Simulated scan of single mutants.
Amino acid sequence: MPSPRDRQARIATFVVYAVQGLSFATLLTQVASIQNKHRLSDLALTILLLIVPVFAGVGSVSAGAFAARLGSKLLLRIAQPLVAAAVVLAGLAPNVPLLVPALLLFGLAVGGVDAGMNMQGVAVERRYGRPVLNGFHCLWSVLSLVGALWASAVGKDLPLAVVMAVPMVFAVAGSLYAGPKLCTIEEEKAETVEAATGRFPWGPIIPLCLAMGFLYIGDSSVSNFSTVFMDKIMHANDNVIPLAFAAYQATTLVVRLGGDVAVRRYGPAAIVRIGGAIATLGFLGVVLAPTQPLAIISFGLTGVGLSVVAPQSFSAAGRLDPAGTGVAIARVNLFNYVGFIVGAALIGPIADASGYRVAFAAPLVLAGAIIVLARGFEPAVKVSRA
């Protein structure tokens, strides 16, 4: 039975996820405006944007070492306000030389927060004794949508710096509220496990890392190229083109709303296996779709399937690290950014060479591989430390 302290930590963790979703969306929705402000070519913009996932990977790995010694609570209290500051600085930057360090800071800090918030989520899940991670990721999606709607509503009426700064006022306020209430380093550890020594082995988490990477290759493919696919392949008009990505985001949100209940009933491995199968079917539908409605439905199916993988990856990593050091979670989180980079770099060249239908066959195959990797989400034996 959760204690009042457990419930307090859970509410604080909800806030941390919400702040991260809002912060990420506030920057992501202004990429076109930043490009126009600085008169960047598509190539220059792509190179600049790669700063974020590359340095986020560095931030995630560093977060694992930091949290193992000092806990993810302190990590989040430092890194999350830095994310908000970086978003504001990116909006204020008058030129590219000042934009670059803002993006670098954003990447490092967002990688630390991504790892830290999932460490907190796993700690809360461990203390509750039942799956709760999908709920946290669901709120991330909700606040991402709020950030996008804010940008859509005021983007043409307010200066870029104001559009990006206003949500960050709420982000900092949320971070300051949640920080003191998060799980301490002692509360992150299982009561029956003493502090671990030595290095955490890579072997048991490789299936989780691969599943996370394959998930984000698919996510990156949909996020970056679904609108291009609808335009160039399906010849949709301007009102229909965004519906493919909207379907993907909507189904992701809906599935995460009920994801924890499904995991409690069927188990994480079964849910990941089913998710991989549905995502594979979705990408197959994209490759073969003869009409615009079927293409939109297919993109929605990819959201249904892929949405369950990340929460269960972090949850499984937490089970493999019962001492609560956070190292396993930080390593799994690293493949979030690996997948994003590979997805962005994979689809474009294949599409240039063979067309977008063939390009979307790549995430189709990798989604199918998630089905095979699902057994790694329910380890049969406890893992000893190296």
Rank of each mutant, 00 (worst) to 15 (best):
L103R: 08
G112T: 10
I370Q: 01
S3C: 09
E125M: 12
V15N: 09
G71D: 03
L176Q: 15
G203H: 14
T192W: 05
N36R: 13
A18L: 03
L75K: 05
S141T: 02
N224Y: 12
A374E: 07
D321M: 09
M1T: 13
I296N: 12
I350S: 06
V338S: 03
L104F: 14
G179S: 15
D6C: 15
N224L: 15
F200S: 15
L104Q: 03
D231F: 01
R39G: 09
L257K: 10
Q120H: 07
L133T: 12
I11L: 14
N333Y: 01
A44E: 13
P53S: 08
F170A: 15
G129F: 06
R7G: 14
P363L: 13
N239T: 15
T251R: 05
F24S: 02
P268W: 01
P101A: 08
Y266H: 07
D42K: 13
V383M: 05
A345F: 11
L149R: 07
N36E: 11
A367W: 04
A32L: 10
R375L: 11
V61Y: 14
L98F: 14
L99N: 10
G348T: 09
R77I: 14
K189N: 11
A196V: 08
D260V: 03
V381L: 13
V222D: 02
A173T: 01
G71F: 08
L49F: 11
A380T: 14
W202Y: 06
T302H: 00
S175Y: 03
F136Y: 14
R385I: 14
R264I: 04
D238P: 08
R199E: 04
V255G: 02
L139W: 06
Q120I: 13
T46K: 09
V358Q: 02
P2E: 04
P94Q: 07
L158I: 11
A269P: 04
A295I: 04
L208R: 13
P81D: 04
V58G: 00
A90W: 00
A165W: 11
T26P: 10
T252L: 15
T280C: 02
G318K: 02
A247R: 00
G57A: 06
L22N: 07
A195H: 13
T291Q: 08
P180G: 06
F66N: 05
L284T: 13
A90T: 00
G57M: 10
A173Y: 01
D114M: 06
K189D: 04
I341A: 13
V31D: 00
S354P: 01
R5K: 10
L294W: 02
R265G: 00
S223W: 12
K232A: 10
L373Q: 02
T197A: 12
S144F: 12
F335K: 08
K232I: 08
R130I: 06
Y216M: 14
S41W: 03
V88K: 09
P379L: 08
G59N: 01
A362G: 00
F14M: 11
R69F: 05
K382Q: 15
L105W: 02
L334K: 07
V122P: 02
M212N: 11
S60G: 12
L257M: 14
V372W: 10
F55Y: 13
V58Y: 06
V304I: 15
G300P: 15
Y17L: 08
S141F: 05
L99H: 02
